[in-house]
């Protein structure tokens, strides 16, 4: 297992695409910080009545969906970037190969998510300074932890979903498109469904699950435990689909 994991890590480090994903993530963090600054500047020059209607200047809320997508692309890359013939000749134990890829994607996306959320929430905290709510998203930095933790978990889950879908469909492009539809396409449609389907279906969409996992959403259809289980189910189902393809089909 250690050798298979070392090989997967080396494979990831020796192609360009992951560095593009890292650079894009960094760019998103910087863009998010710039957005926080612009919101705060606008806030400072607005009348008190308008200030009371401002949204929070927490940039992590804006960039998390993009980082989820980037994590999914990373997972799909780990699944599909090397021809199976070479990968399976080197590591013919497919269960071990699957485990190595899963551990790698989980570790890398967990670090990616943690660093991204730490920097973006920290930056937002500094930019907002001692301004009051609603532009201040938290009373103390510790209040950011539930949302940030849920966001990191969602980034890890979408990374694993990218891996599972990549293994299942054996195509980076198709896997990334499917994740895009799951993250942005379907959640844009579900609120338009008639009641109670709008609430029921939206509650199990990744963007809404993050809020429910964090426990900060008022009147959420799902509690944090149920929402966490549904979020994790995305990873379990997609990795399961990838496992079926990898373990049962010819290379």
């Amino acid at each position: 297992m250690r050798n298979a994991l070392a090989a997967e890590w080396l494979k990831l480090r020796t192609v360009r695409a992951p560095y593009g994903i890292l650079a894009t993530t960094g760019l998103m963090v910087v863009a998010g910080a710039a957005l926080s600054v612009l919101i705060v500047q606008d806030y400072d020059t607005s009348p008190a009545a308008e200030q009371a209607r401002f949204a929070s200047a927490d940039s992590s809320v804006v960039i998390t969906p993009v980082v989820q997508f980037l994590a999914a692309a990373l997972g799909a890359l780990v699944a599909t970037s090397d021809p199976r013939l070479t990968a399976l000749t080197a590591v013919p134990d497919r269960t071990r190969l699957l485990l190595a890829k899963t551990v790698l994607v989980a570790a890398v996306t967990a670090v990616l998510g943690t660093v991204t959320l730490a920097v973006s929430t920290g930056t937002s905290w500094v930019v907002v300074g001692d301004r009051p709510p609603p532009i201040a998203p938290w009373e103390s930095l510790g209040d950011a932890l539930p949302w940030a933790s849920a966001a990191v978990l969602s980034i890890l889950v979408t990374g694993l979903a990218g891996l599972g879908l990549g293994l299942a469909v054996r195509s980076t492009v198709v896997a990334v498109v499917v994740v895009g539809v799951l993250l942005w396409g379907i959640p844009a449609i579900t609120p338009m469904l008639p009641q109670p389907w709008d609430t029921d279906t939206s509650a199990v969409m990744v963007p809404y699950l993050v809020w429910q996992v964090s426990g900060v959403a008022e009147d959420a259809p799902l509690g944090p435990v149920a929402a966490t289980a549904v979020l994790l189910a995305y990873a379990v189902v997609t990795i399961g689909a990838g496992a079926v393809t990898l373990l049962r089909r010819d290379a």
Binding site: N3, A4, A6, A7, L10, K11, T14, T86, A90, V91
Partner: peptide, 8 residues
């Protein structure tokens, strides 16, 4: 190098 790593 990655192929070598995969087999120790």
């Amino acid at each position: 190098r990655w192929i070598a790593a995969s087999n120790g």
